[in-house]
Design a binder for these strands. Structure first.
Length: 791
DNA sequence: GAGCTGTTCTTTTTT
DNA sequence: AGAACAGCTC
């Protein structure tokens, strides 16, 4: 039976070993394209169907929402009968931690109440700035505070006493924490940290249940399953450890807990602990600059004394691509291929990004004419800004493309403001949001900070009583005061209502017409965006049949329980902080039409994908163009050995996205600061026999139009430059030229610079070039940055 | 707070 | 290299 099931889905021997493994802890070192997610899904199904481990007793953790969605989707495809409440333990680290804190853990013991909300990182940064100002702390690089707070948090937690900049940052952390407790909200990091702390506070599950009676039935996991472990950080590792060890303080001889589900009791009762199964690829660590220290894959293996298995067989790419990729592997066995086809690896040299974009447009068009779908083609680059030339040229040439940049609620100011209105409405301790709502320069009361604080504090003094009286007689209530009162009374006003009010009712309740300033220029658009948002929100938060609003049914049905409206809004606000409300609608969507979780359709559109190398992780394409493989760009100029290693893994990730065709290119004239006009070192690391090299000369001879194009571009540049320095150039150039020729009669090297025009090379070493320009004199350039071009 | 000198970073991005 | 900031002086 077991064998039969496994064969049915055609696992190879390695995959099967991973699925069947029953060690207390196991890490699977999964090569690129080796069916990592398939193994994960089959493992879950195997445990569920064959070993009778209830899904409710599995915690399945991913790093991103995208991965979480993929797992639930694939699981549902295999087993359509699975109900959302069975997969409550499935999700990102943060969303699972949030669920535990809300439903299972005595969060009161840590200083919050069950009604806490989740902060987004910008909100936390703003709060930190308030505290710095209020307490007179000395903190450096305030404009980079968000980055600093995240990067140095690990160091702070690990007990270091002072920040690397020797400022008050480490004094800020505890003050910030106190303020967050006061305002009853948690940052992303808090979710993991507090959950871990509460899980390992030495109390048993029963004691937790007593402290928090609503926690309901037993939820202690039998299995913890983790995807992409290599991407996790120290906090996540601690969370895993805390989850696994939770409740271990129970006396072993106690005869075990009652097993929910009687005959469905797991077979593994001989082993008292929780089992851990994690998959990942140490060769694909590309986010360590975010503060992940050592390679987490091995740290996890060591920490849990895990058995290591591997998945060496790649099912994605043709042999030549894999042979090249093997040169960039840093850990583990070589990738083994599964196909016979020899794909193409082409290396091209282009004059500059513009010329290349023109070439790519032509090339992509002809690929499409030969039957390749646009969606099977991708262009990868190192820096976001490199996409600009591509989008311009592709637009003009009519190549359908999709730029992978995520839009969030924050891109629409009125919705960002509205979310703060909701935040305070469902969490009356959240003073920060209330003040922000009242002081926004565009919406609401447009109060000064002082005035806003008065309103917010004033309310605290005369709780309830006063405000209601003002409504009837006495002093007339001001706009901001009314808005504030409406927010504060929100939970009370909607108390006991389980059905969602209509968007119109909410709009009227908050007095949004007035708050959005109907006389303002953008009012119509703002109102539209707000109504659209409220409609979608009410749809998600309504009592029954919640799953309409598109995307993420499993996530949304959690609102279907009997909870009152305010509580559902709180959940909505929290999940929007964690899950984001991205639109993946690329170019347009300014009208808010595409707000809220991705609708179907845009994924399936036949368009070429343009993205950074980082964004390409986890994806695959028939044809991959990796552009700008220049020294100093790919790899990017590195300061440390670790950084260099990571650039190499990034290149590895990029080339292994290609199934059949991989084309790498470098520019003679990269036009990016820091990039040299020479091929990136990685091109030399690929075995020569795998590559078809085409340099610019042979290429241009075959395509006269590109040659013409290039000449046109150069012409444009020259004209522009000549227009800038009329007069002096001509007369002086001659004199300097002859003088120079006398000094170095053997060879005069002419160069050209964007700003200074033509000049003569004086000297050159590894790092610098010195050039004499007529009319400007001698200039020195660092090779890494100069835009000097040899002519 | 203008003006100086010295220092640090420049990129990638998820929750 | 050049931007952006920190910290100093007057």
């Amino acid at each position: 039976m077991t064998e039969g099931n496994i064969r049915q889905i055609q696992l190879n021997e390695y995959q099967r070993a991973a699925v069947l493994d029953d060690s207390p802890a196991c890490v699977v070192n999964a090569n690129v394209g080796s069916g990592k997610t398939t193994v994960l899904i089959e493992k879950i199904l195997y445990l569920h169907l064959e070993r009778h481990v209830p899904l409710e007793q599995m915690i399945v953790l991913t790093f991103t929402n995208k991965a979480a969605d993929e797992i639930t989707e694939r699981l549902l495809r295999r087993e359509p009968g699975i109900r959302p409440e069975q997969v409550e333990g499935f999700g990102t680290f943060h969303s699972v931690a949030l669920r535990l804190l809300k439903n299972r853990l005595p969060v009161e013991n840590a200083g919050w109440t069950k009604e806490f909300t989740v902060m987004d990182p910008d909100e936390e940064t703003d709060l930190a700035l308030d505290i710095i100002a209020g307490q007179g702390l000395k903190v450096k690089y305030k404009n980079r505070l968000k980055k600093r707070m995240e990067q140095e948090y690990q160091a702070y937690l690990s007990g270091k006493t002072e920040s690397r900049y020797k400022d008050d940052l480490f004094r800020l952390y505890p003050l910030l924490l106190e303020e967050k407790k006061r305002q009853n909200k948690m940052s992303f990091a808090d979710l993991l940290r507090v959950a871990s702390e509460l899980l390992s506070d030495g109390k048993t599950e029963e004691e937790h249940r007593e402290a928090s009676p609503e926690s309901g039935k037993s939820w202690r996991p039998a299995w913890i399953i983790v995807d992409e472990v290599q991407d996790s950080d120290s906090l996540q590792l601690e969370f895993l450890a805390a989850l696994r060890d939770f409740g271990r303080t129970e006396t072993p001889g106690k005869g075990g807990r009652e097993k929910p589900g009687g005959e469905n009791a797991p077979e593994n009762h001989t082993f008292s602990g929780v089992k851990l199964f994690a998959v990942g690829d140490p060769n694909q660590v590309i986010y360590s600059w975010r503060g992940t220290g050592e390679n987490m894959f091995f740290r996890l293996k060591h920490r849990f004394a895990a058995r290591e298995l591997s998945l060496p067989v790649n099912y994605r790419s043709d042999v030549s691509i894999l042979e090249a990729a093997n040169r960039f592997m840093q850990f583990g066995e070589k990738i083994r291929g599964s196909r016979q086809e020899t794909g193409r690896i082409v290396v091209k040299n282009h004059y500059d990004p513009f010329q290349e974009a023109e070439y790519l447009a032509d090339r992509i068009r002809s690929l499409h004419e030969d039957g390749e779908a646009y969606s099977g083609i991708a262009v990868f680059y190192r820096l976001q800004r490199q996409a600009e030339v591509l989008t311009k040229v592709f637009e003009r040439q009519g190549i359908p493309f999709e730029l992978s940049v995520k839009r969030t609620l924050k891109d629409i100011p009125v919705l960002e403001w509205l979310l703060k209105v909701l935040r305070f409405s469902v969490n009356s301790a959240d003073i920060q949001s209330a003040v922000n709502v009242l002081t926004d320069p565009r919406y609401g009361g447009k109060c000064t900070k002082k005035k806003a604080l008065e309103i917010v504090r004033g309310d605290g003094r005369n709780k309830g009583k006063d405000s209601r009286e003002t409504e009837k007689g006495g002093r007339k209530e001001s706009g901001p005061e009314k808005l504030f009162r409406r927010m504060r009374e929100f939970p009370e006003y909607f108390a006991g209502r389980t059905e969602s009010p209509s968007a119109e009712e909410l709009f009227a309740y908050f007095g949004l017409r007035e708050a959005l300033h109907p006389a303002s220029e953008g009012y119509a658009g703002d109102e539209h965006a707000v109504m659209d948002f409220l409609k979608k929100m009410c749809g998600v938060c309504s009592g029954g049949g919640a799953a309409e609003a598109g995307g993420n049914e499993a996530r949304q049905t959690q609102y279907a329980e009997q909870k009152d409206f305010a509580e559902r809004i709180r959940e909505f606000v929290n999940s929007s902080a964690l899950y984001g409300m991205k639109t993946d609608a690329g170019e347009k969507a300014a009208d808010g039409e595409d707000m809220l979780p991705p609708g179907r359709g845009s994924d399936t559109a036949d368009r070429v994908k343009l993205m950074t190398l980082h964004a390409s992780k986890g994806l695959e394409f028939n044809v991959v163009f990796m552009i700008g493989v220049n020294q100093g760009l790919i790899p990017l100029r590195c300061r440390s050995f670790e950084q260099e290693e990571e650039e190499r893994r990034l290149f590895f990730v990029g080339i292994t996205r290609a199934k059949r065709t991989l084309e790498l290119s470098w520019y003679t004239n990269p036009g990016e600061p820091g990039a040299f006009g020479e091929p990136g070192r990685y091109l030399q690391m690929i075995p020569q026999h795998l590559m078809e090299r085409e340099d610019i000369r042979s290429h241009e001879e075959r395509h006269g139009n590109l040659r013409r194009m290039r000449r046109e571009v150069q012409e444009q540049i020259r004209k522009k430059r000549d227009g800038e320095n009329i007069g002096d150039a001509g007369a002086e150039r001659k004199g300097t030229d002859t003088g120079q020729a006398a000094d170095e009669r053997k060879k005069v090297i002419h160069v050209r610079h964007k700003k200074y025009g033509n000049g003569v090379l004086i000297s050159e070493d590894e790092m610098n070039v010195e050039v004499e320009f007529p009319g400007y004199g001698r200039k020195k350039f660092l090779k890494a940055f100069s835009e000097v071009e040899w002519i």
